[in-house]
Amino acid sequence: MSSNIDNQIICVEKISKFFGSFQALKDVSLSVNIGQRIVICGPSGSGKSTLIRCINGLEQQQGGKIIVDGIVLNDSSDSLTKIKSRVGMVFQQFNLFPHLSVMDNLTLGPMRSKKITKIDAEALAMKYLERVRIPEQASKFPSQLSGGQQQRVAIARSLCMEPAIMLFDEPTSALDPEMIKEVLDVMSELANDGMTMICVTHETGFARGVADTMVFMDDGEIVETAEPEKFFTKPKTRRCQDFLDKILHH
């Protein structure tokens, strides 16, 4: 794993996050290079979601520093606005806008926040709908699509903002088993095209095939960082070993 500073696109330095008196993140640091594909795993409640939500400003950390694509994330709404448009995010529950058609879901962001014309936004939307292989669903509403299709629309919606980084928070956890593959395939293609990605997922097949770095979190800390092969075959810590035993032979 090369950690070349010139290539660095995300720098998380010793951030902490408290919910009331409960500490969800404890001095967490993470460096991500352009094109790097990180998979984060760990037990429920270990702080995986909280960490990636801090990176796009959905949560505000209390200590430490976050720099994304050269922008220091601080209290100014200006930095937040800039970072929002550089970081895409896909949620477990899709969070599509149910009252808007697929096309309108995709064009809303570019038209309102980037002031792109409707025609250009629709062209952009079609380009990314083709990328996630559902251009024929453009005029439907989210409720008329399968879970897998909805998640692909959500991915396309993020891509329409042309982000530098994509965050995925358990994108396949809410899907029926037969739909998981179609979403993972889209994510793999995205990775092949060079997208910088941080994925919280327990899909070990995807992690082995796509990730170049595995991060294991437990109890608000990053416990282990390793290449996938080493991570899955020779984890360094007891906690990681226990976790892998659970997810590999459940």
Partner: peptide, 9 residues
């Protein structure tokens, strides 16, 4: 949250 990620004010 979805609105946040597509940069809506």
């Amino acid at each position: 949250e979805a609105s946040h990620t597509i940069s809506l004010n």
